[in-house]
Design a protein around this nucleic acid. Structure first.
Lengths: 193, 193
DNA sequence: AACTATACGGAATACTCATTCCGCTTGTAG
DNA sequence: CTACAAGCGGAATGAGTATTCCGTATAGTT
């Protein structure tokens, strides 16, 4: 690959990251190209569709998440399991709430998000993290792995809403969730059928 | 207003309710008109823009919510405060999760939703409900009125996501929230600045 | 029954983008 | 230094859809 091509590809990714993060998926291809100081044609040479461009960005995010989850798993081995769990969950929520497109994708392309989570290895790490945290008695026994992306999805939407209505605080929603998830449980959750 | 006009207006509202509920705001005006057995022109005579059509539907929903909140307030006077609170919260969540457009609006038009909540009197009822529920010691003291729409917004998004990814259960997110909100609190929530 | 203000239908309009196309430029191998 | 494959820019294209417009139909009135 020619050196300029590699440079342009990187510039496009960075421009897209920034614009998607604050405008969501409606950010326009022309604007992304302009911000990357590149023609639209160049954007399309590297990413055949707008969706594939988003996918590329999502894959990066999941890699970061997976790495953080692995750290949390390590932390359960030496330190406090609840701290490890809470730390990872807060990290996920922060990643999510900083990026509007990611939050939209979580709600409207959940299937693809799940695939990305599997590919990056995140699901495996999460299973391990949850298993260890439960074994330590830190979270309620009926919590399941899927409850985590569900919460992240919800928190992401609250963050989007908060742009217009600042009183709606995603960090409070998260705080309540953490309290609700910490052992002991007060009331059993609906079973998965 | 001519009788046929009133009839048509109603038909449009009902068609729009159904289509918005399952396709979200992307439901097309042409399709709404077709479903209402009416020309597009007629839709536009009654509702000058797509947004005003949505607003009309939202106003109806808030009226139902407000009525239910008032009932819950009454219930706190005679029965169990937690039951009253939980009943109202579950009702809100169900209304939300049955309607895709409503859920989208909660995340992306939160300011307008808040206005609708004020106009319908919902906010006043909620304040009263929360005050009484706290006084009875049923919910944590640091819960605020805004935490309720925040949760509803989040739960709505999870419901949208669940259409593609059925493992993400909004009813579990709600169950966790309820546990997190029930007194006593485990950890203080972030203060509103 | 005739009249007319209201309302109706739906083809045409207008606009917003994603995506395509192709003539021009430039990195780089020899 | 040249040749040319790889890459580039950005005007033009095309599809999707909210909204407008106006000739026609009809409810309600006298």
């Amino acid at each position: 690959m020619r050196a300029d091509a590699r440079r342009n590809r990187e510039a496009v990714l960075e421009a897209a990251r920034a614009l998607f993060a604050d405008q969501g998926f409606e950010a326009q291809m022309d604007e992304i190209a302009r911000k990357a100081k590149v023609g639209v044609g160049t954007v399309y040479r590297h990413f055949p569709t707008k969706e594939e461009l988003l996918d590329a960005l999502i894959a990066r995010r999941f890699d970061a998440l997976t790495a953080r989850a692995a750290e949390a798993v390590e932390e359960t081995k030496t330190g406090d399991a609840w701290e490890a769990f809470e730390g990872f969950v807060r990290f996920s929520a922060e990643i999510q709430t900083c990026d509007r497109a990611l939050s939209e994708a979580m709600a409207t392309r959940s299937e693809r998000m799940h695939e990305a989570a599997v590919c990056s290895g995140l699901v495996v790490q999460l299973e391990e993290l949850l298993k260890r945290t439960k074994r330590a008695g830190a979270v309620r026994k009926d919590l399941i792995v899927e409850d985590i992306p569900s919460m992240v999805c919800g928190v992401g939407s609250v963050a989007i809403a908060a742009a217009e209505k600042p009183g709606w605080r995603w960090d409070r929603v998260l705080g309540i969730w953490l309290d609700g998830v910490r052992a002991p449980a007060k009331k059993k959750l609906p079973p998965i059928p």
